[in-house]
Nucleic acid binder design. Structure first.
Lengths: 226, 226
DNA sequence: CACATATTCTAACGATTATTAGATTGTAGG
DNA sequence: CCTACAATCTAATAATCGTTAGAATATGTG
């Protein structure tokens, strides 16, 4: 309109677009979600995302240049972490907006999740209260170090790949609720399938730690009790 | 790659990345911010963003394919609007994350804003209360149709380009607080400069309607009262 | 109908990006 | 020193994206 001095304002949007560009790649989004579970080395990130370490390094560089991640060196390893709580919240917001508006995403999600009846329909607060009362057992089926970096209150760490041989840790008489990294993660589905096959009453929730936190609910840290 | 051998999980991140890609261009972000002020025709969007209408159309097509905007035809004009409240909230979240982590953005912002002492330091709630009491006069200096689409409670519509000849509408004895489209918008700065030169006690806030709403505060709709 | 205007479509170009693979840097441990 | 390994850097490529300008489509008006 009356303004012809475009450049200073353009600079602002250009900076915000740096964040947008960082979030414009599927692989980088997957890395962000993995990092939302706690800090990880490049090697681990690459293997968990199923890509070459050199490609992971390149994507992490892009994330670092957008200041969404920070690094720490320990010996031979370099550990990446999200540069703030707000970054994982941004990931949740972005994913939720995508889910809201992209039918294709909702359809892909529905096809992936096995049975809808394994999903807990209850609200978060009441679920938390039942966990507090010991009415249900909440299990975190992610790797143990992700549990340590942050987990739901009253949850027990029971990584998926240890689940079968640690079944004795679980009470057979109480309902079990499993969770993992979030709505895109299949580990809790697998856990429910295994537990159901073994005769347990097991269901899952879609939340990961970031989604739980985004809902304004508390999160705890610390090692699993043996 | 030309081959479609993606794992089902990759499909999910790819869908979310559609939203990320849409937000990866400065021009598109500017269009989103403009659309957060209410629906607009392509022509108006192009002129307000300072770009060719054909380029605006191309960017809007990208936003439409990411389902972030929807259209409505009225005669010769096609009006674009954000496809939900969540889209403007996503814009706010993205901008805030950028502000939090990108020093370059904070520096560019500081250089753009004229005097920091023109900024209201008060909290939103107390400002709202003062506006309710009539202790201050809140003015919305955006174009009138943006005011109609949504504005802060108790705000009066006083578009920047009408401000000078409508000075009589303003009480000289009360403090004036101006706002416009948000932290990237300079209209409230210009309004404050003009009003101060005319002897009014005028300051500004950084919030636009989306930021105000993101803070959980109420927003009103409707034509300005003449 | 012809005409003006709003918008989209198309083709083309240079710029940017994703991915791959080889070479290089940095650290730990013998 | 040498070796092993994590991670980054570099170069090359194919693919995608942003921008421009001309052509086409759709609507309203005389």
């Amino acid at each position: 309109m009356w303004m012809n001095k475009r450049s200073p304002k353009d600079l602002l949007y250009e900076q915000v677009a740096r964040i947008g560009k960082a979030l414009a790649s599927p692989k980088r989004l997957e890395l962000v979600e993995l990092l939302a579970q706690g800090e990880k080395s490049v090697e681990l990130l690459a293997s968990q995302a199923g890509i070459d370490m050199r490609l992971a390094s390149a994507h992490l560089k892009a994330l670092r240049e957008a200041r969404l991640v920070e690094t720490r060196r320990d010996g031979k390893y370099i550990y990446y972490r999200l540069s703030g709580r707000d970054v994982s919240q941004l990931w949740v917001t972005l994913r939720e907006t995508a889910e809201e508006h992209l039918v294709e995403l909702r359809m892909a999600l529905e096809q992936m999740t096995a049975q809808p009846d394994t999903l807990v329909s209850e609200g978060r607060e009441s679920l938390l209260e039942k966990a507090r009362q010991g009415e249900i057992v909440m299990i975190d089926v992610r790797p143990a170090n992700e549990f340590s970096a942050g987990h739901l209150p009253f949850a027990r760490s029971l990584p998926l790949d240890e689940l079968e041989r640690r079944l004795a840790d679980l009470p057979a008489d109480r309902a079990i609720v499993a969770y993992c990294r979030g709505p895109f993660c299949l580990m809790s589905d697998q856990a429910v399938a295994l537990l159901t096959a073994k005769g347990y009453r097991a269901r899952k929730i879609l939340d990961g730690v970031s989604e739980w936190e985004a809902a304004g609910l508390p999160v705890e840290q610390g090692e699993p009790t043996a």
